[in-house]
Amino acid sequence: MTPTPGTPTLPSLSGLTSKAHAAPSTPLKIDVTTLNFYYGPKRALHDITIKMHANQVTAFIGPSGCGKSTFLRTLNRMNDIIPGTRVEGSIKIDGVDVYGENLDVVALRRRVGMVFQKSNPFPKSIFENVAYGLRINAMAGTRAELEGRVEESLKQAALWDEVKDRLHDSALALSGGQQQRLCIARALAIRPEILLMDEPASALDPIATQRIEELIYQLKKDYTIVIVTHNMQQAARVSDFTAFFWLGRLVEFDQTEKIFTNPTEKLTEDYVTGRFG
C-alpha cells in the first residue's frame, strides 16, 4: 500500500538531531553528513545526515528497498566489493573520514564488525570460525591466547555453554539460532567498537530471536550497535534510538520511544501504525 500521491516535503534535519542529542552523555561515535550513495547512475541514498553515539543501540526501520541495508553497509565499506558504486558526502567514525584517501579498509573492518541476515558460518569447526578473524589479523600470539579469546567471544555471545564440549565439530551442524550467535561471536572476537547487524533475527524462530535480542541488550554495555530490522516491535524492544528510512531518505531520527508513540513526521506515523509497509 503506497502513501497518498504528491511528494511529501521532508523536514530539515538540523532541528531533529539537536533534539536527539539532548539525551546521550556518551561521545559521538558515527557522524554522517549529507551522504549520497550511487549504484552506477542510480542514486540509492539521498543526503543522509545522522549522528550516533557510543554504547547506544540504533535501529534502522523502513519498508523493503528503502536503503537501510545499503546505508548500513556503507559504514564498514562492504559496498566496495560491488562494482560501480560511488559515495559522496562524509562518514566519520571517531572523527576519521571513513572514505578518506589513505584509509586502510582492512583496519576499518576490524573496528566495525558486521553480522549478516542469513548466518554465514564458514565450513570449518566452531573453534576455527571464531579464530578466523584473530588469525588473519594476527591478533593472538600463542595457542593459549587464541583459545582464551575464542572462549571469551563465545561467552559474550551466550554460546559457550552449548558448544564448549564440541569446539572442533563442524559449525554447520549447529541450529540456525546457534549459527547466528556463532557469527556474532566471530565478529566480537576481533574486539570491534561498533557492531552492525543486518536483520540478524529475521531467519530465526521466536525463541532464538528472543535470545539474540537479550544478547544485544547485554552487548550494549561494551559496543555501539546499529541494527537494521523489518520488525518494528523488535526495534521498539531493543533500541535506544530509531531512524526511519523511506525511498533512500532519512525521514526521522529520534529516541525510540518518541518515534513509536509520538512521531513528528506524518510519514513516520503512517509507517509505525501500519498504514503502509
Binding site: M78, V106, L108, R109, G113, N120, F122, I136, N137
Partner: peptide, 23 residues
C-alpha cells in the same frame, strides 16, 4: 562457493587474496 562466505570473510577484515586462499 556461496558469496555469503566471501562477505563474511571481508567483514572480518580479510583482504581479497586472504579470503580466496583461506576460504
Amino acid at each position: 562457493v556461496p558469496n555469503s562466505l566471501r562477505e563474511g570473510s571481508y567483514a572480518l577484515g580479510a583482504t581479497k587474496w586472504q579470503t580466496i586462499w583461506t576460504q
